[in-house]
Amino acid sequence: MALLADLFLQFSILTVVAFGGITAMLPELHRLVVEQRQWMDDTTFAHLFAIAQAAPGPNLLVVSLIGWKVAGIPGAIAATLAISLPMSLVIFFLYRHWERFRDAPWREAIQTGVAPLAVGLVCASGWLIGASAGLDLRGILLTLACTGLMLARGWHPLWYIGAGAAAGALGLV
């Protein structure tokens, strides 16, 4: 029971830094579950993230999988509720008042400031997952090539996933 309470409390606190969604908070989530609490290792964390990304549905699945790995089905439920419930309640109560301040200069400042924060957090998450996956030079080069192509061409991400799968199947990565 103490483990479930700790899981719920820690994940509830993480919702404060969830600008940009679950993916943006992966570095802090990793720090918590791998480095601080030692509930799992780097590889398990990367695998759970990969499974969550491969499954249909929201990115929130990674939190449910981490909770499941830590404390089974009750852990999955506690982690999912902890990530979803607190900020959902805050947004529910604040949203009614947000429109009242549509012309306030501080509102635009907040909205302008949150965008680069979210982008930076998502980039940090990508770096963390790459580092946790234990990439060698070939994996790093494939990552850089896919990133460059995505920025230059804007192809659908499934093409890059397919390229990575093919490179892995052929033993190139």
Rank of each mutant, 00 (worst) to 15 (best):
L3Q: 09
L4A: 03
L4G: 03
A5W: 12
D6N: 06
D6R: 14
Q10V: 05
V17F: 15
V17R: 08
A18M: 09
G21R: 07
T23V: 15
R31K: 10
E35T: 13
W39A: 04
M40E: 10
M40D: 07
T43P: 00
T43S: 15
H47L: 09
L48R: 07
F49Q: 02
A50I: 01
I51D: 03
Q53L: 05
A54I: 06
P58K: 07
L60V: 11
V62S: 05
V70P: 04
V70C: 02
A71T: 04
A71S: 09
A76F: 11
A79S: 12
A79G: 05
A79Y: 07
T80M: 06
L89S: 02
H97Y: 14
R100G: 07
F101H: 11
D103W: 01
Q111D: 12
Q111M: 15
T112R: 14
V114W: 05
V114N: 03
L117F: 12
G120K: 08
V122F: 13
C123M: 15
A124V: 13
L128D: 04
G134W: 13
I140K: 05
L141N: 02
L142I: 11
L144M: 13
C146K: 03
C146A: 15
W155Y: 12
L158A: 11
L158Y: 00
W159R: 10
Y160M: 06
G164T: 12
G164I: 09
A166H: 01
G168S: 10
G171I: 09
